Measured scan of single mutants.
Amino acid sequence: MDVCVRLALWLLWGLLLHQGQSLSHSHSEKATGTSSGANSEESTAAEFCRIDKPLCHSEDEKLSFEAVRNIHKLMDDDANGDVDVEESDEFLREDLNYHDPTVKHSTFHGEDKLISVEDLWKAWKSSEVYNWTVDEVVQWLITYVELPQYEETFRKLQLSGHAMPRLAVTNTTMTGTVLKMTDRSHRQKLQLKALDTVLFGPPLLTRHNHLKDFMLVVSIVIGVGGCWFAYIQNRYSKEHMKKMMKDLEGLHRAEQSLHDLQERLHKAQEEHRTVEVEKVHLEKKLRDEINLAKQEAQRLKELREGTENERSRQKYAEEELEQVREALRKAEKELESHSSWYAPEALQKWLQLTHEVEVQYYNIKKQNAEKQLLVAKEGAEKIKKKRNTLFGTFHVAHSSSLDDVDHKILTAKQALSEVTAALRERLHRWQQIEILCGFQIVNNPGIHSLVAALNIDPSWMGSTRPNPAHFIMTDDVDDMDEEIVSPLSMQSPSLQSSVRQRLTEPQHGLGS
């Protein structure tokens, strides 16, 4: 029994001894940790006062410096006190997940390849973020970090730009207890964004957000305005092209109309020559008939004078003969009235020469109109080809070629109108001259024959008349068809009918 009691006491004593040793060891460790923490804080404070003595007594600045020092320690893998190029590049790629850190790398180092804690602190103090207000930090939280649900907490804590380094380091107390961020992804996102802002300055999105919006609005307005302008120009170009094509079609119709007119003019001239020949034959025939009538009257007179026994018949025959003579005298007077005045042959040749010289100047004017028309046609064809290209319509709308071609078409039409008026006036004037003179002027042997017949020096006439060419005029020349008939041919039928009527009546009387 005593043995059992003793054994229990030994065990209890051993447990108490072991517990005492454990408590003693724990207290010694706590004392050691407290001592090392105090030494670390003293070291940080001493270093901060050495680097930035004016701010070393500010608790907030001291906390920010400690956060900057921890960031530098995080980047300094070899713990030599300086962050070199390789260490910063590795940190950007692995910790901040930048696949192309060239720009960030140059911004961080600049011309200094080794970055110490002092360099990093001075860079942070010179950053724009260091002077941010609470509102600017909240704006950064909303737009860049995209965590607007913590806006009220940031405003309540009055977190300005000075506190940004403390957000950039992993601090459970700061993010969990103070900021009350329960979501781990939110804490990590805030820490990475803050670290990027401390090292490289304010984000471009935050700094140029309004400018970007303004430029976007301006670009949209310019784009819409450009599209509207292109649409208006395209519609104007199509309308202008439609008008130009309509004018061009009018020129083609006028060309065909003048071609038909020239054919009718040539045909009328041929008919005029035929009528002139018929007139000469008719006059000769009338003279022959008059002579035959005179001979017949003389023969009847002689027969009736030789027959004294038939006085009654003779008297009747003499009366008939007197009627025939009276008819012959009237026919002769009618014929003489139409051919009583004949212009000198020299006057006819001079008038024919005048007509040919006028035709020369008319042909020159006509050729100029043809050239203008050809230029207008070529310009229209070029515009047609340009319209078939990809940007042809837009190019035509913004060039002056369309207006130039339109002006050329209008100029050609005006020139053709002048040529039309000149042709109309010339035909009418020479027709009236032919009526008054009674001989042909338009139809003549040609300028060379006339110059030779009148003994004129050929050098006075200049160049010879160009051959009539096919040219274009407007449709108002169609009503000239009825005026192209020679006035002499219009007189011939009346002359034929009057003479024939007077010759036929006596012959019928003789026949009876």
Rank of each mutant, 00 (worst) to 15 (best):
D76G: 06
V85W: 04
A67T: 02
Y98P: 02
V68L: 04
R93T: 10
G81K: 13
D78S: 13
A67E: 04
V68N: 11
H72V: 08
L74Q: 03
I71P: 13
E94Y: 13
V68C: 07
D78L: 14
N97L: 02
Y98V: 02
V85M: 05
G81V: 10
D82Y: 04
S64N: 06
D82M: 12
D77P: 08
R93P: 15
L96V: 07
E86M: 07
D77Y: 02
A79Y: 02
V85C: 08
L92G: 15
L92R: 11
A67L: 01
F65E: 11
E87W: 10
L92Y: 15
L96F: 03
L96C: 04
E87Q: 07
D89G: 00
F65S: 06
N80H: 11
G81T: 12
L63D: 14
A79T: 01
L96M: 09
D76Q: 13
D89S: 00
K73I: 04
D89H: 02
R69F: 11
V85S: 02
H72W: 10
D89F: 00
D78F: 13
E86A: 06
D95Y: 03
E94I: 14
L92V: 11
V68S: 05
E66Q: 06
E94R: 15
F91Y: 08
S64H: 12
K73P: 05
E87T: 08
R69G: 04
I71W: 12
I71H: 12
D84Y: 05
D77Q: 09
I71C: 11
N70M: 13
L96E: 09
F65R: 13
N80S: 01
A79M: 07
E87I: 05
N97K: 00
N70R: 15
D84V: 03
N80D: 03
V85Y: 05
R69L: 03
E66M: 09
S64Q: 13
E66V: 05
S88G: 01
F65G: 14
V83F: 08
N80C: 08
E66W: 08
L96P: 03
F65N: 13
L74V: 03
V83R: 04
I71S: 09
R93Y: 10
E94G: 08
A79N: 08
D95A: 00
L96G: 10
Y98M: 06
N80Q: 11
K73E: 03
L74D: 08
D78G: 10
V68W: 14
D76L: 14
H72D: 05
D95L: 09
S88T: 01
N80Y: 02
S88F: 01
D84G: 04
D76A: 10
E90H: 08
D77I: 06
S64E: 14
L63Q: 15
A79L: 02
A67K: 09
E94D: 06
F65T: 10
E87D: 02
V85I: 11
D77C: 06
D95G: 06
I71K: 10
V68R: 03
E86C: 06
S64D: 14
D95Q: 04
N80V: 07
H72G: 09
A79H: 06
